[in-house]
Nucleic acid binder design. Sequence first.
DNA 1: TTTTTTCACGCAATCGTTGCCGGGAACGTT
DNA 2: AACGTTCCCGGCAACGATTGCGTGAAAAAA
Lengths: 340, 340
Amino acid sequence: MDSITIKDIGRALNLSTSTVSRALRGSYEISAETKRLVVEYAERMNYRPNPIALSLKENRSRVLGVIVPQIANTFFSQAINGIEAVAYSRGYHVIIMQSHENYEREVITVQQAVDRKVDGLLISLSSETHEVAHLQTLHQKNFPIVLFDRVSNELDTPKIVADNFGGAFAATEHLIQRGRRRIAHIGIPIYMSISQERLAGYRAALEHYGLPYDETLVRHVGLGEHEMAPPVADLMAQATPPDAFFTASDRLALGCMAALRAQGVSIPEQVALIGFTNTTVANLLAPALSTVEQPAQGIGQLAAELLIERIERKQQAPPASTHKLPTRLFIRESSGPVSA
Amino acid sequence: MDSITIKDIGRALNLSTSTVSRALRGSYEISAETKRLVVEYAERMNYRPNPIALSLKENRSRVLGVIVPQIANTFFSQAINGIEAVAYSRGYHVIIMQSHENYEREVITVQQAVDRKVDGLLISLSSETHEVAHLQTLHQKNFPIVLFDRVSNELDTPKIVADNFGGAFAATEHLIQRGRRRIAHIGIPIYMSISQERLAGYRAALEHYGLPYDETLVRHVGLGEHEMAPPVADLMAQATPPDAFFTASDRLALGCMAALRAQGVSIPEQVALIGFTNTTVANLLAPALSTVEQPAQGIGQLAAELLIERIERKQQAPPASTHKLPTRLFIRESSGPVSA
DNA sequence: TTTTTTCACGCAATCGTTGCCGGGAACGTT
DNA sequence: AACGTTCCCGGCAACGATTGCGTGAAAAAA
């Protein structure tokens, strides 16, 4: 790809590259006539400044790195949409990378992003990530980082999350108001921030309504839905099996539904079900799945805005604020009819 | 971010930058001792070559541009996974961009990718794209482009697609073998390559089994599932309504299912349904959705392989071959029981 | 006419890296 | 002793763009 450079323009017009550069940037010390000539020629030849050369000189790339556990996930792809929209409108490009829920890959990916000289990093931690030394080092070097969704307390950066506690509280409350009393909770790996918050919300709702918190009703599993059958079977085999399930993620709700169906359990008659998910097909399932929906796009937007602000405000001292965005409760069939 | 450079190393070790550079690259004309010194120091200081400087010098970025209509789509995110896997294993990075099914944005996005000096482009055309002048120009300048999934005949580049004809044929054949005779087809915008091929496969299967091709049974709609109710209602209002639907995309199948359910039509008793989709929840729907599944990841992998090959083989003359990958028929409940 | 000011532009350095050329030292060959 | 090799390494230039500084010439002021 032989694109035209400032040098080519200079040669063609018998001007120095400096003059061309200044003409294009509208410097006052270039005559109107020369400017016109240069601008016209550049236009005609479809000149585009080489962003790589600029990056080298200015030591910035106008690229944001986004690292998510996986993009084949409604929540993350919606969040990425939000990030992209903000980034592009502010002249940044976005480079999307996946950690594939793997700690080592996350570390490598972060390193690669930094090598590529991204101006900042937006990260949602992998489910395997307990330790954040790889980010801590960067953060201490004053490298702009914003965490979203899956965050870490050990990192003193801005964080954007959904109101996981509130969403879980609302979901549990909803089940209670539908007359359910033995509400099981299936969560994702417990060391994840979102997992803990959702568990806390569930527990708080139980307490608020005077229901006991029963540890035997709580399970934490991996992220693949294929792992759902055993815990569900286990729960249903209890002396007094649960009459409701509150699951903590996109895939868990679907996996749980499949497992229950496989067990011949009727939803919502026998067991009510509500998920914490952004899947777009919730209303097409049978029964239509009640969910707590997260403002994925809004999370992405806010994260990108904060990151760009942090990048462009050269000063140190990131605010390190945590932004909590409200969730929405979507009541459909799976959580059962209004109880008599 | 103050990363260490080759110059810093030179200063610290009292060597010229050229020597350091050569030492790091293991050049034969540097003494073993010096090499050791340099490599050790570089290691210790965690030196990383600046890829931007390299890009500028070598006029290549080791970045592949991927442009898809949207990432929040199972097929595309799977394809991207395939692309990524191949790219990273061969030392390339991937920059993902979305056209949002919009022609103008596609044009702009292509331009931005080129400005960013990606080494090559992997594109699946937006549904609005009838004209490919923006790609034709690039292609003629010998810029590496590979099309996948949504391709164009007007572009003489390598193309990777699913066997849309075969998949559609198999789906239609399956419905026929289940005893269905009035099979409706709902497709996406007809000027898209995949749309035409799927229609052709549907038609060929009808002919092969001696069924008439009835134009009134065929509809083409936009890509949003919210537009599904009218055509479905329209079809079901016919004197002899269809006894089966074959839909041509991820969202159509789901939208169609919702529309049929809203109409009170029972699936598969009254109307059998089969989709052309990669959605992971097909088996969780009620009834479980029969589908034709595309090798999304394989398509991505092959596309990336061909692009990289094209990039690294400096020669001109891209093969311009079209690669057709087989689809798989997944028979579930929605296409009905074996007919008596 | 001479001096000063203004205008319009060129030179060169810079960013990090590598390719090309050249050059000094040590050694071997006549 | 003179010359050629080989081994190691440094200097310069270049990739594309920006920018501080310098400079020539013309215009304005003296």
